[in-house]
């Protein structure tokens, strides 16, 4: 019968790819099978596709539409079309927006390498064949399964000037440390949130690195050891090259999560002190929801989407070119 080739062939290329010796009947049954496959494929993807359209694409399009209006969450006046006014306002008349954009990028620029690196470090640690290692895997993953709202409340306690973080530093430095309220100082608040965010999420990326590590065949290590490679050389020549595709995945997921930073800010600092922790998503929610300026909030969201998409495409291009 018809045997589909393993390289994908677009359905419309049927005719040209079919050889002349085939009989009409065969050609017909091939086309019928293709049609059946097309229909089956579409109907299997349809439930997910419809749900994504209904609950993600349509709301996003609604938000895009709103961003060109002065729509209010609460108002007796109907929304007016205002063209690009909201966009002009964001870039010229809203210093908090600009600051939020900078904060978002700073957060991502620190989180992406540090969390990826620390995750890899943990993964290498727990990938050893030594007793009790599973227990440590579980412990490092526990913050991931804890609600970020709960985590933020706990850490807010710990960051107080008389809180646990300060008393620990105090103990380590034998009392030389003057306690400070980490979340109340514009120069430390974002750093404090970065630390907490890494603590919460690094276990997840540890696990992903671990899955990458475990796909590297043991024989490669054995061969390297035969050649007298040190542990460091093994890492550089066997482990790291074997983790390429894992790395791409880790970088992309951390970047997307980091750019969307919201809950920690909402629970812990509300963007303060002096805007030092306001992020794009937080600012969009503050304007669009809390301050009821739905249209303007939607504008910030739209700018955010465009930025993230651009970054994602750049990342894709960069990681692809090296292949």
């Amino acid at each position: 019968m018809t045997t589909p080739t393993s390289t994908p062939v677009p359905p419309h290329a049927d005719r040209s790819s079919e050889g002349a010796p085939r009989t009409a009947a065969k050609r017909h049954s091939t086309r019928a099978a293709r049609r059946r496959e097309g229909r089956a494929g579409f109907s299997m993807v349809a439930p997910a596709l419809i749900l994504l359209l209904l609950f993600l694409v349509i709301p996003v399009l609604l938000a895009f539409g709103l961003s060109f209006t002065n729509a209010r969450l609460i108002s007796p006046n109907p929304p007016r079309f205002v063209g690009l006014d909201n966009f002009v306002r964001a870039f010229t008349a809203d210093p908090v927006f600009v600051r939020s954009m900078i904060n978002t990028f700073v957060f991502a620029a620190v989180i992406v390498p540090v969390q990826a690196g620390l995750g890899l470090f943990l993964a290498v640690l727990v990938n050893q064949k030594i007793r009790g290692v599973t227990a440590f895997r579980v412990i490092f993953f526990i913050p991931v399964v804890t609600s970020i709202v709960v985590v933020s409340i706990l850490w807010r306690f710990m960051y107080q000037s008389d809180g646990l973080i300060n008393s620990m530093i105090d103990t380590i430095t034998f009392g030389a440390w003057q306690g400070m309220a980490w979340l109340n100082d514009p120069s430390t608040a974002l750093g404090a949130i970065i630390v907490l965010s890494i603590w919460q999420a690094v276990g997840f990326h540890m696990l992903i690195w671990l899955s990458g590590l475990q796909t590297i065949p043991e024989e490669l290590y054995e061969a390297a050891r035969m050649d007298g490679a040190s542990a460091r050389q093994q890492f550089a020549n066997v482990t790291w090259p074997g983790l390429r595709s894992t790395m791409v995945f880790v970088l992309v997921t951390i970047t997307i999560a980091a750019l969307g930073l919201f809950v920690q800010i909402d629970v812990m600092t509300q963007g303060g002190p002096v805007n030092s922790t306001s992020t794009l998503v937080y600012h969009a929610v503050r304007k669009g929801y809390r301050e009821l300026e739905t249209g303007y909030g939607a504008t910030i969201s739209l700018i955010f989407f465009v930025l993230v998409l651009t970054i994602a495409l750049i990342q894709r291009r960069l990681t692809r070119d090296k292949d």
Partner: peptide, 23 residues
């Protein structure tokens, strides 16, 4: 469809929450 799925990965829920309620 595959590109659409990948593109929707980047949408944080908070940013579409308000239109979602209405919808």
């Amino acid at each position: 469809v595959l590109s659409l799925v990948i593109a929707t990965l980047i949408v944080p829920f908070e940013t579409v929450a308000v239109p979602m309620v209405y919808w």
